[in-house]
């Protein structure tokens, strides 16, 4: 199996994951859920969702620092009761560029599956294929991927050295 050349692997800071499992009233659930987070100034760096008729299935990740706050907010929401699950410590691993190539996707699933590293979520963007796994296994996941995906010489998977947060949304002056 020939290695595929990529440009980089980016690892996130520690996050936590929230899953909504096949919940009824899809449209209102998602809207309501995102409104709760936005009104509490909580960013969602990763979200992956699908609809099954009137049901929604969602996974999203947020900063680990916000975990207690989000748990309190969600636990106070009777409409979401019983269908929410938390994974306490997750991280994002983004491989880029994927160039829409199924081989990059295939090798990523193959490598992590073979190493029995869990994939809690998945989403692609224009350039990156982002996988969610346990935060404690993020470095191991990056190592495993490099058995099949080749970084430029001398380059290693990296973590951003700074973080940007937004202090306020002001709609109009």
């Amino acid at each position: 199996m020939k290695k595929i050349r990529i440009e980089g692997i980016k690892l996130s800071e520690e996050l936590f994951q929230l899953n909504i499992l096949r919940h009824f009233h899809s449209k209102d659930t998602l809207r309501h859920f995102c409104r709760i987070l936005a009104s509490n100034k909580i960013n969602i760096p990763f979200l992956s969702t699908a609809y099954f008729g009137e049901e929604v299935q969602l996974v999203c990740c947020m900063s680990a620092e916000q975990k207690a706050k989000v748990q309190d907010l969600i636990n106070a929401e009777a409409s979401l009761g019983g269908c929410v699950e938390f994974i306490p410590s997750t991280g994002l691993l983004s491989v880029y560029p994927h160039k829409s190539d199924v081989r990059v996707l295939g090798l990523s699933l193959f490598a992590l599956g073979r190493a029995r590293i869990p994939i809690h979520g998945l989403a692609s963007s224009l350039s990156a294929l982002t996988l969610v796994t346990d935060y404690g296994r993020l470095d191991e996941a990056a190592e495993v991927l490099q058995e099949y995906l080749e970084l430029p010489p001398g380059q290693r998977p990296f973590r951003p050295q700074f973080r940007i947060t937004q202090s306020e949304i002001v709609k109009g002056r």
């Binding site: 992956s48 699908a50 299935q57 699950e85 190539d101 090798l107 989403a123 294929l129």
Partner: peptide
Amino acid sequence: LWRLGDAGVEFYLILGQDLG
């Protein structure tokens, strides 16, 4: 999926959600 790469198959979006 990797094998499909030989046929030139491309994706526009891939999403996945944890099944508990």
